[in-house]
């Protein structure tokens, strides 16, 4: 994957398959500590296999398939950039995938177009409440799809209309970051 946002999209796809109705994506930059932290949490059915199996590229829970590359590729991207990927239970009730990496590492891939990535999820999943949190030392910027929906007319609360509004809000939230990720 050429962007970290595409790895995030891949993990979100896992959460949707696990029946999540809430997915929380957090991007935290610690410029002084040289750390970029990405978390994706959900309230889905949780991990029903050992963590080692989830990270094994030759293990998948999908019927008829033999490989499951998503999490192992994200783990490799984290380790290439001096970081790690951990999987834990989320306070939301499902799985929490946490990735840390060195912000200044030359092998760290760029965050990429996170607004386009997350707005595509919003557009195609009208029943999903996506929470996005951005922090770069200062106050945290939070964008929740359910809050954005309340600002819109009832007939704009799904599809392209809400996706565009969420995209704008995420771009504004990311504008407050250091610009290094």
């Amino acid at each position: 994957m050429r962007e970290l946002s595409l790895h995030i999209l891949d993990v979100i796809e896992n959460s949707i398959r696990a029946g999540a109705s809430i997915i929380s994506v957090g991007i935290v930059e610690d410029v002084a500590g040289d750390v970029l932290e990405i978390t994706v949490e959900d309230n889905g059915s949780g991990l029903n296999i050992p963590v080692e199996d989830a990270l094994d590229p030759f293990h998948t829970t999908k019927d008829g398939k033999r490989i499951g590359l998503g999490l192992s590729l994200f783990q490799a991207a984290a380790e290439q950039a001096g970081g790690a990927l951990t999987i834990d239970k989320s306070d939301l009730g499902g799985v929490a995938v946490k990735v840390t990496m060195s912000l200044s590492n030359i092998d760290r891939r760029p965050l990429g177009d996170l607004a386009a990535t997350l707005s595509s999820v919003v557009c195609t999943n009208p029943d999903l409440d996506l929470w996005c949190r951005f922090s770069s030392g200062g106050p945290e910027c939070v964008v929740r799809v359910s809050d954005v929906a309340r600002e819109l007319q009832v007939n704009e609360r799904c599809g392209l209309a809400i996706a565009r509004r969420v995209s704008e809000k995420i771009r504004n939230g990311l504008a407050g970051m250091s610009g290094r990720s």
Binding site: M1, S5, L6, E13, D113, A116, S119, S120, C123, L160
Partner: peptide
Amino acid sequence: TVHMGTCGIAAGARDVMAALM
């Protein structure tokens, strides 16, 4: 329906979805 498995995402499914929108 845009197919967004790991293979699809790596090949550019996100950009296809954005272009469709």
